[in-house]
Simulated assay, not measured.
Amino acid sequence: MLDLAWGPTGAAGLDAETVVVVDVLSFTTTTTVAVERGLHVLPFGWHDDRAAAYAEERRAVLAVGRLEARERPGLPSLSPAAMASVVAEAGTRVVLPSPNGSTISALVAARGRTVVAACLRNAAAVALALAGRDVAVVACGERWPDGTLRPAVEDLWGAGAVLAGLAAAGHALSPDARAAVAAYDAMRPGDVHACPSGRELLDAGFGGDVDVAAEVGVSEVVPVLGAEGFRDGR
């Protein structure tokens, strides 16, 4: 039975061969945009001082912060809108740290699981590619100020979109997974902008990121994490 888990603790308890990581605002959306452009995304932990050395070791570009990317267009960052305009050749490796999706992707990969990045943009493509396989889905969520998990409804919608496709392909769903599908079915236009994470980005001047993340079914890429980073695994 296909299951849904939340956050790093939930991800650590999954035994499925393939784990779909969903972080709509913004890691997996940004990764999907990067892979659409032929870039390879290397996940890395958040606020880890080793990131620069890791990027140098892998001959990769280290992503900058959202504010720096806005001031210096063309640089990769966690912003999906900025990633869409990155000036880089296909095949360029980008180290993309984030507190949730990137960190969880690295943790799951370290346990020997295949990691796939999904968001609203490519959920249908991911479900189609993984139909019939041993799969579980992780909704990454956000963090409260004390570091505990804050469930994020946009990740529930993204997970539900993937799970709906897998259910249509014949997968049996756990009660949690069915609840995610029901949440996705109830999603309405404008909801990603109106949810707490969306409002935070809008208030900070990053409405373009929310616009990109809210697009449903516009991408066919299936980012699969391998030695060279997330690449299209179709």
Rank of each mutant, 00 (worst) to 15 (best):
V21Y: 02
D23R: 00
V24Y: 07
S26Y: 01
S26I: 01
F27Q: 03
F27G: 00
T29K: 01
T29M: 04
T30L: 06
T30D: 09
T31N: 01
T31P: 06
T31L: 05
V33L: 03
A34C: 11
R37V: 02
L39H: 05
V41L: 11
V41Q: 00
L42W: 13
L42R: 12
L42G: 00
F44A: 15
G45Q: 12
G45Y: 12
W46G: 00
D49S: 13
D49L: 13
R50A: 14
A51Q: 09
A52E: 15
A52R: 14
A52N: 01
A53Y: 13
A55G: 03
E56R: 15
R58G: 08
R58W: 14
R59F: 06
R59N: 15
R59G: 15
V61A: 09
V61L: 14
L62A: 10
V64P: 07
E68N: 02
E68K: 12
A69W: 12
E71G: 08
E71C: 08
P73A: 05
G74A: 09
P76T: 05
P76Y: 07
P76S: 07
S79N: 05
P80D: 03
A81S: 14
A82I: 05
M83N: 05
A84S: 10
V87H: 13
A88E: 00
A90Y: 06
T92R: 07
R93M: 01
V94Q: 07
V95P: 07
V95Y: 04
V95I: 10
L96S: 02
S98H: 03
G101N: 00
S102K: 06
I104V: 15
S105N: 09
V108Y: 01
V108S: 04
A109S: 13
A109I: 04
R111I: 00
R111N: 02
G112H: 13
G112K: 03
V115D: 00
V115Y: 00
V115A: 01
A117C: 05
A118T: 01
A118S: 15
C119G: 10
L120Y: 09
R121H: 03
A124W: 08
A124I: 02
A127E: 01
A129H: 14
L130E: 09
G132E: 11
G132I: 07
R133E: 13
D134L: 03
D134W: 07
A136N: 07
A136G: 13
V137I: 12
A139Y: 03
C140H: 04
G141N: 03
G147N: 11
T148I: 08
T148K: 07
T148H: 15
L149K: 11
R150M: 14
R150A: 15
R150C: 13
P151T: 07
A152I: 09
A152L: 09
L156T: 11
W157K: 05
G158E: 09
A159Q: 12
A161G: 08
V162L: 03
